[in-house]
């Protein structure tokens, strides 16, 4: 069978579908000071999943606010800098108007994912940390 670390090189999704892959990628991102990109990506997925399990509205609102505050509000943050202004305004509007939708972070997540696919992921595959692991 194909070893997991070779699968990680197939696509970002294969990497993010494996616990060890996530761990190694996060260690790499931490070195580059951009682990928030990955945390935000998972936070968006987790937020969307909440809708499926009959979770209370208060928790959803609290979580949406927490994600907004930690990753988007500060324009100098690594995540915030990679998200388009229109996308940020959309999320801000949702939070301010208490219009909490399971898909409210989808566009922002896509933008961060594209950035990782084009930038941090290929760099990771060439990094010492990955090569040493393999």
């Amino acid at each position: 069978p194909t070893p997991p670390y070779l699968k990680w090189a197939e696509s970002l999704h294969s990497l993010l579908d494996d616990q060890d892959g996530i761990h190694l990628f996060r260690t790499f991102l931490k070195q580059e000071d951009c682990a928030d990109l990955l945390d935000f990506w998972f936070a968006c997925s987790g937020f969307r999943k909440l809708e499926a399990n009959e979770c209370n509205e208060e928790k959803k609102l609290k979580l949406a606010k927490a994600i907004y505050k930690k990753y988007i509000l500060d324009n100098n943050g690594i995540v915030s800098r990679q998200i388009k202004p229109a996308t940020k305004s959309f999320i801000k509007d949702c939070v301010m108007k208490l219009h909490i939708d399971p898909a409210m972070f989808d566009q922002a997540q896509t933008e961060i994912q594209t950035m990782m696919e084009e930038n941090t992921y290929p760099v990771f595959l060439k990094s010492d940390i990955y090569l040493e692991y393999t």
Binding site: L16, D18, Q19, I22, F42, C44, L50, K62, K70
Partner: peptide, 20 residues
């Protein structure tokens, strides 16, 4: 503040794949 961080961490963990 702590509970907000906990909530966020719980959300991040919930989205990660489980050990195979």
């Amino acid at each position: 503040i702590d509970s907000e961080d906990d909530l966020l961490q719980e959300c991040i963990t919930s989205a990660m794949p489980k050990k195979k």
